[in-house]
């Protein structure tokens, strides 16, 4: 080949699309999702499985909106806008589905360490987990065979409660808090780390995040990048340091400072957000909006800070 011109940098010269959201006309670039269009109008749409650095999997369905002409509601996180689209984000149908999604999750998952927004939405939408009955106790979910199940005890609301998995020194997996948003699988897999140590296994209510045969992480392909922790919306995946401080009642975000700096290890230039409480690093995250690694780190950047605090 004898191309001489430099290959052009991709330039976003996208068509403009006009649509209506809640009666307001809005014009956005082609390829914009309904969710992004709502955000430009300042309309809050709740999301759980969505993260701006991951391709939308649209599984939680809390972001659904009504699109005129569509039989079912539409996941706003993944549906691109179309010319003339008429979107309603606050109709009774939409509110019912969002309330029920939150209610179904709250009745089956421990949301105690989920972000503050989740609890605000539960209140705002009036989701009432209690009407599904008293929560059922822990079960051995990792061995569930697809299609075989015993109906839960009459009167109990089955939950995903189970024993906390603590099989390494850096992070714990408390799948009682897992809403199965798929983000950790995406981050471990093709969206970031490409390690594929975990996948969704089983099906239906028994679907779960699992290594092969539920082997412990040290026996899996896990490379402890912690990118799964970085994307987990409910605290199901957590630094050991945070988990233990919470257990002892010492975790206190009001006393924490978050400082952005650069990882002290290799030359990639990943940015770190050091969460410091009482002059000790208690958690490390990475900013999603920094284009070197978009929130992702490796084991050294995520966990290799002990040398800075004398062991």
């Amino acid at each position: 080949m004898t191309t001489l011109a430099p290959a052009p940098t991709p330039v976003a010269l996208r068509r403009r699309i006009e649509l209506s959201i809640d009666g307001e006309a809005v014009t956005v670039a082609e390829g914009t999702t309904i969710l992004q269009a709502c955000r430009t109008l300042g309309i809050e749409v709740p999301t759980l499985c969505y993260l701006e650095t991951l391709a939308p999997v649209n599984v939680c369905r809390v972001c659904v909106v009504e699109v005129e002409g569509s039989r079912a509601l539409v996941p706003s996180c993944s549906r691109p806008v179309a010319p003339g689209m008429v979107v309603r984000t606050g109709s009774e149908r939409v509110r019912t589905s969002r309330r029920m999604v939150l209610e179904l999750l709250a009745s089956s998952v421990d949301l105690s360490t989920a972000g503050g927004d989740v609890h605000r939405w539960i209140d705002e939408y009036g989701a009432n987990a209690d009407r599904h009955g008293p929560a059922g106790g822990p079960t051995a979910r990792d061995r569930a065979h697809a299609g075989h199940h015993e109906a839960s005890a009459v009167g109990e609301a089955a939950t995903v409660a189970q024993v906390v998995k603590r099989d390494n020194d850096q992070y714990v997996r408390d799948y009682s808090k897992c809403i199965l948003c798929y983000k950790c699988v995406e981050a471990c897999g093709e969206e970031a780390q490409n390690t594929f140590a975990i996948a969704v296994a089983g099906r239906g209510f028994d679907a779960r995040i699992s290594t092969e045969f539920d082997v412990a992480l040290p026996d899996s392909a896990c490379v402890y990048c912690g990118n799964c922790i970085g994307v987990c919306p409910t605290g199901a995946l957590m630094f050991v340091s945070e988990h233990d401080l919470r257990a002892s009642g010492e975790w206190d975000e009001s006393r924490q400072e978050v400082t952005r700096t650069v990882c002290p290890y290799c030359g990639v230039g990943c940015n770190l957000e050091l969460h410091v409480q009482d002059n000790r690093i208690v958690k490390v995250t990475s900013p999603l909006d920094h284009d070197v690694t978009r929130g992702n780190l490796c084991v050294k950047g995520r966990f290799g800070f002990e040398f800075a605090q004398g062991g």
């Binding site: 589905s97 999604v101 179904l104 999750l105 009745s107 239906g204 209510f205 679907a207």
Partner: peptide
């Protein structure tokens, strides 16, 4: 039993 478990309405809704 047959829900794939991907989305919340079906995964938890069929259980409930």
């Amino acid at each position: 039993d047959e829900s794939c478990g991907q989305c919340v309405p079906c995964r938890v809704g069929t259980q409930r």
